[in-house]
Amino acid sequence: MALLEIEGLTGGYGPVQVLHELDLEVGDGEVVVVLGANGAGKTTTLRAISGMISAKGRITLGGTSIVGKSPERVARLGVAHVPQGRGTFTDLTVEENLRLGGYARKGGVAEDVQRWFTTFPRLEERRTQQAGNLSGGEQQMLAIARGLMSRPRLLLLDEPSLGLAPLITQDLFQRLSAINEEMGTAMLIVEQNANLALAIAKRAYVLETGSIISSGPASEVQQDDAVRKAYLGY
């Protein structure tokens, strides 16, 4: 059984239905990428998983149904959602942001804070600064590190490269790949920078108007003509 299983997922905002019978799964320790045009429902899918919007259908995490559960419950079950635009606590310090990442977890967080400071030394340099004063790249690192502080089984990343310079984006994906290898954290990544995302992913889905239109191993999706034209730019 896969870690995350989604079947027949339908949902949206108020009267507007964005997702139509969407099926998707993420295996244990697997990195999966979702590609899709603007408005296809990528962000909505992540928000449905983490309980930020109400949805119908089946979503299970490790066999437990998480449909209709509040975001805080879903978070406690092991899902860390790094939202689009990062969602850092801008008034709080870098260190406080990290400690909050481990809020729902039992036991001390100091050790994990140190661990992520080691991985992202820039954050340690700025540990007492307000998160709102960090640069875009630093904020993204902070948001990801905060997500990992909960030692999640599944990390949801919504356009992690948004607004980041090419060099920083490359660095970010290398780090994500390293974290996946080292810790075995499963990741579901929504990303427009499809080349880099596919390079670290095992499988990929292509989303169009709220349903999956194709899926497969990342390397195969990368070779697909339609995908190349729409998402890869060559």
């Binding site: 509040s70 975001p71 860390a80 939202p83 606590f89 406080e96 909050l100």
Partner: peptide, 13 residues
């Protein structure tokens, strides 16, 4: 955290 960003605080549990 709640005072600063309700949505993110729910996401951290």
């Amino acid at each position: 955290a709640v005072a600063n960003n309700v949505e993110s605080s729910r996401l951290v549990g």
